[in-house]
Each structure stands twice: as C-alpha cells, then as structure tokens.
Design a protein around this nucleic acid. Structure first.
Length: 835
RNA sequence: GCCGAAGUGGCGGAAUUGGUAGACGCGCCAGACUCAAAAUCUGGUCUGGGUUACUCCAGGUGCCGGUUCGAGUCCGGCCUUCGGUACCA
C-alpha cells in the first residue's frame, strides 16, 4: 500500500504530456466546430497558402511529406493568429503511371488502388493536425475534375495552341510510353524505371507553350520566387537573340537557313552543318556520298537525343558532297551533316565558324577543315595562330567592308546589311520546346478528339464532356495502349458526319492536371465552370506556394503558362499563379534521397505514435534551415520532446491561473520586481524574435528562441499571478503555430474557454520591454578581445572610455605602448589600436 | 564543362549582415534524487597550454593570400560536397 502511494505521487508530479489524448481532442474539436473552413466572402486580409498536392501512392505519407506540410502549416497558422483569413487546402494528384504499373504487376485496378490510398492518406493527413479545409479537397482522377482538363484542351485547340505532329519522341520500351525530354535522365534512361530510352516517331499532341516564351520570361520579374528557381526557368526558356541567314546552294535553287547569334562572324564560315534528319539532306546529297551519308545516319539512329548531344562525346559527321554559298562573299563552302546539329533547335542548320566557336573549332580540327580568323582578339596580332576558338569581342578582320568594326557593333551592322539585301533578318530563338502532353497510357485524362476517316481531327463537343475513362480495360503491357484496345471506348461515330470513327487513344500528361488545380480548390464541385471565377478573382494568385525545387522547370513553368492562357480566355484577372514560392529542402537518409527501392524510407508513424504529431513536427522544424533540408537522424528528437513536456508541466502547474489573475496589456518596467523585469524583457524580446523568424520560414531559430525563453522562466513562481498570466498567455500563443495541439491545450489550461484558432490572437512586443538598460561592450586591443565592460545602453564614447581605461586587463595590454586610434561602436565594441 | 548553393565543436546547427564565434538542441562528463534503474533537476563541455585561485595565455569557422582598427561574414585564387544543365549554333 505504502509503495503504491509513493509511486502514484511520483507519477502525478511529473506526468508525461499525454499527446495521443490531447491531439485527438483538439483534432475533434477543430473538425466539429469547422474551425478550418474558409469563409471566402471575407476577402480582406485573404491568404491562400498552398502546398503542392500529394501523389497518392501505396507508400503513404513519409518524412518528406511531413517536412513539406508541417512547417507550411505552421506558417499558415502563424498568419491565421495574426488575423489573416487563411485558405489552406489539400488534395490528390491522383492520375499517373505508378498506379498503372502497380496494376500491371498486381492486377489491382488503378482506380481501386488510388481510391484506397486516398482513404488511407486522408486519415494520415488528419492526424498531422494541419489546418486543411476539407471541404476543398479534390482529386484529379474524378470525372468532375478531369472534364475541365478536356475543356481546357478544347480551348487550346480552338486557339491553335494544341496541335498534333509526328516527331521524334523518347520512348521507354519498358513503360511503353512517351517521355518528355525533362523526364529522361542525363544518362538517357527513363526517370521512372531506369530503362534506356529509345527514339520513336509517333503522332503526339503538343501544347504550344513556346507562344508564351517571352511572357514567361518577363513574368519572372514580377514574382517573389527564389532567384535560383527563376534562373533555372530563364535558362530553360533559353532566349537568344541573333539573325537568321539564308545560304544558297551551289547548282540548285534550294536555300539553307541558319540561325546564328554571331552574324559578325559570317565571313569566317568555312562549312555548313545540317542535322542528319534535315529534309534537305536527301535532296542535296550527291550520288558518290549517298552511301556514306546513309551509313552515318544508321550509326546514330540508336542514340537518344541526350546521348547525341552529350558534350562528353566526340563530335562525328560526314560531308554530303554539296556546297553552300555564303551570302556575304559568294564563297562556296562544303555542307556536312553532324550529330551536333539538332533538328529541334533553330532551323536545324548551323553555319560553322571554327575560328570563333568552340564546337566548330573542335570539329574543324578533327576533319581538317579550314579555320579562318575574322575577329581579332585585343592584344593579339592578325597572323598569330589560333590555338582555340576566340569567342569574345574584338575587331573585325578579313570581313570586306566591315573590317575595323568592333564585333559587337558588327552584329548590328551585318544584320542590317542582310535585311537590306534580303539575305536574312533579325531573329529571336528559344531553347524552350512545345509541351508534349500525349501519353500512351490508361490512367489519365482522355484526350477529347475523334479521328474520322472523312473529316480528320474532330474535337469532341463541349456539351459531350467529360469523355469518361472506361473502367473495364486490359492494362497489361503491349504494343497498343489499353484505351486503344478497348472496343467500346475507342469506336464512335464521327460527330460531324456519322461515319465510323475512332477516339484518340492517348491520355494527358498529369502536369496538365496540376497546372490549374489551385483554381479548382476554391470550389471543387462547381459544375458549370472550370472554377468559381468570382472567387478566383478575389483569391488568386496563391499568396504562398511551397513545394520541391525539382519542379522548377516542369510543373512550375507549365502552371505559369496555363495560367496566362486562362487569363487570355478572360477567366482570371491575374498574370501569375503563385506570388511567393518557397522550396523546402530535401530530407535524405544516409546521403540518398528516400525511396522505396533504396529501402531507406523513414516511416513517420513510429515517431508520431511514440512522441506525437507536435513533437515530430517541431523536431523536423528544429533540425535546421527549412530550405536546406538535410540528412535524416532521429538523434535529437528527445530535445523537442523534453521541450513539449516542460511546457506542458509549466501550464499544468498553473492550471486555471486566469481565474484569479487579470494580466495587463503591458507593464511599466520600473514598477516590476527584478525577476519580473528580467522575464518581461525576455518575453517581449522573444515575441519580436519569433514573429520575425516565423514570417521568414526560419522555424529552427523561432523554436530556439522559445526554448531560451522557457529556460529563462526559472523564477516565474516568484512573480505575481497577474504578471505570470501575462507571460504564459503570450507563451501559449507563440507555441500554437509551431505545436498547435499543445498551444490550444496550454491556452485552455490557463482558464480560457475559447480556442486560439477559433478566436485568433497574436501579441506584439511592447517596445519598452525590448530595451535593455545596460549592455556589455567588448573591449579590444588591436582587434583582440581583452575584456568586457558593462555600461548603460547608448552610452557616449567619453563615458565608456572612463570605464575602459580603468580596466586592469585593458591596461595590461596597452601598458608602455602608444595609442594610435580608438574606435567606438555604440553598444557593441571599444577597440584601442596601439603600437 | 557551364550555372547555382553550401563547407563552423563529437553531432544538428546559431551569429542582428563587418563588431564578444559556437545561441538553441543532441550526445558526453560530474553531481543531486533513488535500495537501484528510468525519468527529472543542477553544473561542465571548441582545441592546446599555464594557474592555489581564473576576470589567464595562444590558436581556431575547407585551403592560400588580400582589404580593414576588426573578417565565419568583403575581395582574389584554389579544394571538396550537393543540386541544376548537357554541343542551343
């Protein structure tokens, strides 16, 4: 009996924070009261916070998701407490290849596995305790959603921005699907399965993103995105300004148009290169070169574009026997084909100037083609031999009437000359290519087009949307896609003429889904429009968008393009979708990205069960700067666990404090006891610090500041109850965005009968509480720290000097030396320079 | 190769942007409580050296130089790691 009593007492005095119970309690409270539902009619201080939606794979939520969602929710909650009307939705990027691959392997239908995964993931997400408005939940595989992908397609089609062409595309023999260039890895393998990618010619649907290239470039100046990401998009768009120049062909009427950024080097052209696939090659190749050309073309057929254009690979090529005529001097130069000329960029033809282009130089050296110097490098002589291409600005030589001009000036002059004579014109080229959206797969949005033997391409009428994805299909791998093999789906009558026709068998890239989903969240079940335009005009753009940097040149570029198109349809009044963008860092494990195949995925459940969602979320935030990520280790989690328990104990000890205490809004510092004065300053300094750090996604330092404050509350029990209440209410509010369940619980423990997130509240620091009345000043001699002295804040130099020159340690170091200079920085340092 | 970011204790990381390097946390060491352990609490913890005592001395932020009274922070040149990109004419 006695032993039991002792144990009971110990247990009571130091009770562990009952996280499971408290987290369940508040999640239930928030849900039942509908606290996270957004009132869209209140647009003052509206704040649309969005995190990239989740791909519902069987692997469920992992640490990376937590790292993405938890801290973002903390920021959203922080803004909510500051009085913003926050909208924070969550949904599912539900179409895609993995579900179909899973079906191929297990026979489980993609729809069934996806819906099941969504069920599970939704439950997991709810346990995180984020502020999601579940009324806004959406999934892209629902007909009510993908109907509007099809509608969007039709609008693009009408404007000529969706078109079909036969083009060399990346084909993954394993997945039996086309891959976008961005989805092929640097080594020429499939991003998803690692199989080497081959080339295949297919009719494909494209969205003409290139029409928006210039605007996509300009728009970058207007958005608050990481510079790094904007730079990546700029490079991806790859604008270059130059000229298109028309070369003649010797003994033929044909013309060869080349694009060059260096028209000033036209006199240095010693050969011309065509892409091996260029249509002119067949026409121009002389009989004696035919065999050689065919052999060369065969030799590069098996290479992917990535391999062909690899800089590491040595350049190859063969002459075709024909000659081009240089318009500036009438000179005949040989025509070659070489794999370094790309049919997909510019005109597919290159004028080669080995003297002033590194690639051409290398090629000319290898095949003994002439190298002619036409730009003189400053500080060199005309007859010095070129050992490498000179690509800088210099003086034009060997260039007829243009000799003596500076080469940058020459670019302008020669372009004008070409335009005058009709040999060329100024031209802007982009590296960006049109967006290939066709997928020869099942689990995606059907393309709403019918192919009729009589009428050709016939778009499906808008009133017949959605073209629903049939459930009964054979999705085993094979030559044709599952939809093409589905008789019921694929065979239709032509809507125009009634003839037997076929549906387009392809589905859309899932990046189409994600390029406008942020509009749909505002009212995901609206039937008569793509999205609620009235709400969108008030709530779009997304104010804060958080997601991985790996989407820099794909999703984030496509979404900007589609946004601008939607604007051009008159459906939105904004130019950009995402006003501010933040990338969370990557959490790796043993140096590698977490992935199922590597077997290094860390399951968050074991931590949330043992420690609770708040502790786990705090730990992820405390690990380091949010945008840096880092290698996973659970070593420090006991730190945030201890913190949470200490905070809970503190509030538990002061349960119902507000019943007999009425804290003031602020205190006159001079009226406080020493302990109170100290705590008052720390509290207000922390308010300021936490506010600044949370605003900037600096969660680690915000948490450190709160821990520091907690450490400084040792003597809180020596303070008056009113004062205590002042400190603890503020502590609870600062805790709430970081650890929302704990924050609410602490708030309630104090005796409040409201919820913090139901009645948001944030405290600003009292400026008077920020001021220290004494500061420590570092005293240096010749820049080395020798002592510190305490002086009143903002002391003038003379006052400090008096103290400094009484300091023994300082005197010791200046003894017998002459003082050259004294530097005083108020409240910081006093440096004495001696010799 | 080119573009970008980063290198700070045993570990994760701070440092008001040129002004006391190592906040906060983990780990470790010592002590308290306990029959004991766990939990908790208190103190210590950059390295080397000196002292009865420390308000002592020297060195120290990837490497080599420089600017400055003063450099983790700025400049020049390297090295390493991680991302992006791959002949774009």
């Amino acid at each position: 009996m006695g032993k039991f009593a002792i144990n009971f007492k110990i247990f009571n005095e130091n009770m562990r924070y009952p996280h499971a119970e408290i987290e369940a309690k508040w999640q239930k409270f928030w849900e039942e009261k509908g606290i996270h539902k957004t009132d869209f009619s209140k647009t003052e201080k509206k704040l649309y916070t969005l995190v990239m939606f989740i791909y519902p794979s069987g692997a469920k939520l992992h640490c990376g998701h937590w790292y993405n969602y938890g801290p973002t929710d903390t920021w959203a909650r922080y803004r909510k407490l500051k009085g913003y009307n926050v909208f924070e939705p969550m949904g599912y990027d539900a179409f895609g290849l993995p579900a179909e691959n899973y079906a191929i392997k297990t026979g489980i239908h993609p729809q069934d596995s996806t819906l099941k995964n969504i069920e599970d993931i939704r439950q997991q997400l709810k346990k995180m305790g984020c502020m999601y408005d579940w009324d806004a939940e959406l999934m892209t595989c629902a007909p009510e959603y993908y109907k509007w992908n099809q509608w969007l397609f039709l609008q693009l089609y009408k404007k000529g921005l969706a078109y079909r062409k036969k083009a060399p595309v990346n084909w993954c023999p394993n997945d039996q699907t086309v891959l976008a260039n961005e989805q092929v890895q640097a080594d020429g393998t499939c991003e998803r399965c690692g199989t080497p990618v081959i080339q295949k010619n297919l009719y494909q649907w494209f969205f003409k993103i290139t029409d928006y290239a210039e605007e996509l470039l300009d728009g970058l100046d207007k958005i608050n995105w990481p510079e790094k990401t904007k730079l990546m998009q700029r490079n991806w768009i790859g604008k270059s300004v130059g000229a298109e120049v028309t070369f003649g062909v010797d003994g033929s009427d044909d013309e060869i148009k080349v694009f060059t950024t260096r028209p000033d080097t036209l006199f240095g052209v010693t050969y011309v290169v065509l892409a091996p696939e260029h249509p002119l090659v067949d026409k121009l190749t002389t009989d004696e070169h035919k065999k050689q050309v065919e052999e060369y073309r065969d030799s590069i057929k098996s290479l992917t574009e990535i391999e062909r254009t690899s800089t590491v690979k040595e350049k190859t090529g063969v002459p075709i026997g024909a000659y081009a005529v240089n318009p500036v001097n009438g000179e005949k130069v040989p025509i070659w084909i070489a794999d370094y000329a790309l049919i997909t960029y510019g005109t597919g033809c290159v004028m080669a100037v080995p003297g002033h282009d590194e690639r051409d130089f290398e090629f000319a050296k290898k095949f003994n083609l002439p190298i002619r110097k036409v730009i003189l490098e400053p500080g060199t002589k005309e007859d010095d031999e070129l050992t490498e291409a000179f690509t800088g600005v210099g003086t034009m030589i060997n260039s007829g009437e243009f000799n003596g001009l500076k080469s940058d000036e020459g670019i302008k002059k020669i372009t004008e000359w070409l335009e005058e004579k009709g040999y060329g014109r100024k031209k802007v080229n982009y590296r960006l290519r049109d967006w290939l959206i066709s997928r020869q797969r099942y689990w995606g949005t059907p393309i709403p087009v019918i192919h009729c033997p009589e009428c050709g391409e016939v778009p499906v009428d808008e009133k017949d949307l959605p073209v629903e994805l049939p459930y009964d299909v054979d999705f085993s791998l094979g030559g044709e896609s599952p939809l093409a093999r589905n008789e019921k789906f694929i065979n239709v009558k032509c809507p125009k003429c009634g003839t037997d026709a076929k549906r387009d068998p392809d589905t859309m890239d899932t990046f189409v889904d994600s390029s406008w989903y942020y509009f749909r969240y505002l009212n995901p079940h609206i039937e008569e429009q793509m999205f609620d335009k009235e709400r969108a005009d008030k709530w779009i753009p997304v104010d804060m968008y958080v997601g991985g940097a790996e989407h820099a040149t794909m999703h984030l570029l496509y979404a900007r393009f589609i946004h601008k198109f939607i604007r051009d349809l008159g459906l939105t009044n904004s130019d950009e979708p995402f006003q501010t963008l933040i990338h969370q860092g990557t959490i790796t494990n043993q140096g590698a990205k977490m992935s199922k195949s590597k077997g290094n995925v860390v399951n968050p459940d074991e931590f949330t069960v043992d420690y609770g969602a708040d502790v786990f979320r705090l730990y992820l935030m405390f690990m380091g700067p949010y945008e840096m990520g880092g290698d996973w280790s659970d070593k420090g989690i006991s730190g945030t666990d201890r913190f949470v328990n200490k905070v809970y104990d503190l509030f538990k000890r002061n349960e119902n404090l507000l019943n007999d205490a009425s804290p003031k809004d602020k205190y006159d510092v001079d009226s406080l006891s020493d302990d109170e004065k100290f705590i008052y300053k720390k509290t207000n300094q922390t308010l300021k610090k936490v506010d600044e750090e949370l605003e900037q996604f600096h969660f680690n330092t915000a948490i450190a500041a709160l821990m520091e404050l907690l450490n400084n509350l040792k003597n809180i029990d020596k303070c008056s109850n009113d004062f205590k209440a002042y400190v603890l209410t503020r502590f609870a509010v600062m805790t709430a965005p970081l650890a929302p369940h704990l924050g609410e619980e602490c708030w309630q423990l104090l005796g409040n009968d409201t919820s913090l997130f139901e009645n948001p509240l944030w405290f600003d620091a009292d400026p008077a509480g920020l001021v220290e009345d004494a500061v420590n000043i570092a005293v240096q001699v010749n820049g080395k720290l020798r002592s510190t002295v305490q002086v009143p804040v903002d002391s003038e130099q003379e006052k400090v000097k008096e103290v400094v020159f009484k300091d023994e340690k300082v005197l010791k170091h200046i003894d017998g030396k002459s003082i050259v200079k004294e530097i005083y920085v108020k409240n910081k340092i006093y440096n004495i320079v001696v010799r």
